[in-house]
């Protein structure tokens, strides 16, 4: 690790004040310290935010939940309200990492975890995300973990979070505080940026801005599922995953929200697919049609082309599970 200055902040104002000139917040540290050991990240200062008062889960007046940025992944998955009203979120969290890591990983840190692209991790390799302008070694290289949607000629990395995929299906928004103490909230659909020509800029957060909470609206459906496919049964990142929230009425799908992990630079959603399904009765043909529409614009590499049929099957299986009975 490159030496850094360590500062423990006591308040959000102190934290955002300290977070300038190459400083980075540290929450659980499970992603940041990993990357700092490899010198993929080398902040000049670590601002420890663990003592800030951002650890609670509260009911909102609108019937939703406000999840503090420091709520640990294990506490969020274990919360009785999340388990009963947002099971897709509990399931996504429980499908990620390990018991030890979930005890430390925070809501804010999970949203901002960096890609698992092998070349991003290897400082001997060119990588536009790590070193803007150096090139992308993944294109034409080993791409098992890489994206098929939303990529550019500059970067094809995925966002690896499971939690964020469920949050995208739940239409979460992210509450942000700037150094002047102003708070704003950004829909998760607007929070992540596509790589384009600037893959090193991953979100709309400006330097020094702090995530204070994630807001969940009331759940849009009672039928919820998270299905994740990975290279081993546990403790591995998603090859593909699907978070689904469906509301049925009179044998038809009244509301459908689907988000996909392991396939895009951000938790992926496709409005056309949801529109195709809504208002219709579930059937194998319809699900097949939806799956075909979903992958119509996929851009693949030799190493990740398997995700096209895999994603279609996982989507059909998830829709079956959500609409049966």
């Amino acid at each position: 690790m490159i030496p850094f200055d360590y500062q423990r902040a006591a308040s959000a104002a102190e934290a955002t004040g300290l977070a300038r000139d190459g400083a980075t917040f540290i929450a659980g540290g499970t992603n940041l310290l990993d990357l700092m050991k490899l010198e993929v990240m080398a902040p000049s200062r670590l601002v420890d935010i663990n003592r800030l008062d951002l650890g609670g889960i509260e009911d909102t007046t609108g019937g939703g939940l406000r999840i503090g940025a420091l709520v640990r992944n294990s506490d969020l998955a274990g919360d009785p309200r999340v388990r009963s009203s947002y099971p897709v979120l509990a399931r996504a969290l429980l499908a990620g990492a390990s018991g030890q890591l979930r005890n430390k990983a925070t809501t804010g840190g999970n949203l901002l975890q960096r890609t698992r692209c092998y070349y991003f991790y290897d400082t001997a390799m060119p990588c536009n995300k790590r070193e803007p302008g150096s090139g992308c070694q993944a294109i034409g290289g080993a791409t098992r973990l890489h994206a098929i949607f939303g990529t550019s000629d500059h970067c094809i990395a995925t966002h690896p979070s499971d939690m964020a995929v469920a949050m995208r299906a739940l239409d979460a928004s992210i509450e942000i505080e700037d150094s002047a103490g102003n708070r704003r909230s950004v829909a998760i659909s607007e929070f992540y940026r596509l790589p384009g020509t600037t893959p090193h800029i991953e979100t709309v957060l400006k330097p020094g801005e702090l995530i204070t909470a994630v807001l969940l609206p009331p759940p849009g459906g009672t039928r919820q599922a998270y299905r994740k496919v990975r290279d081993r049964a546990s403790y591995a990142f998603a090859l593909v995953s699907v978070a689904g929230v469906v509301e049925m009425a009179d044998g038809r799908m009244k509301r459908v929200a689907l988000a996909f992990g392991g396939v895009g630079p951000q938790p992926w959603r496709n409005a056309e697919v949801e529109a195709l399904l809504e208002g219709k009765a579930p059937s194998a043909e319809l699900f097949e049609q939806a799956a075909g529409l979903l992958v119509a614009k996929a851009r693949t590499q030799a190493g990740n082309a398997f995700k096209v049929p895999l994603l279609q099957r996982v989507l059909s299986a998830t829709l079956n599970e959500l609409t049966k009975g």
Binding site: G29, D48, K104
Partner: peptide, 15 residues
Amino acid sequence: GRRINSCLSLACMHE
């Protein structure tokens, strides 16, 4: 009381 990976935590964060 909670299990964590001590390799991914800084000692100074444990005051």
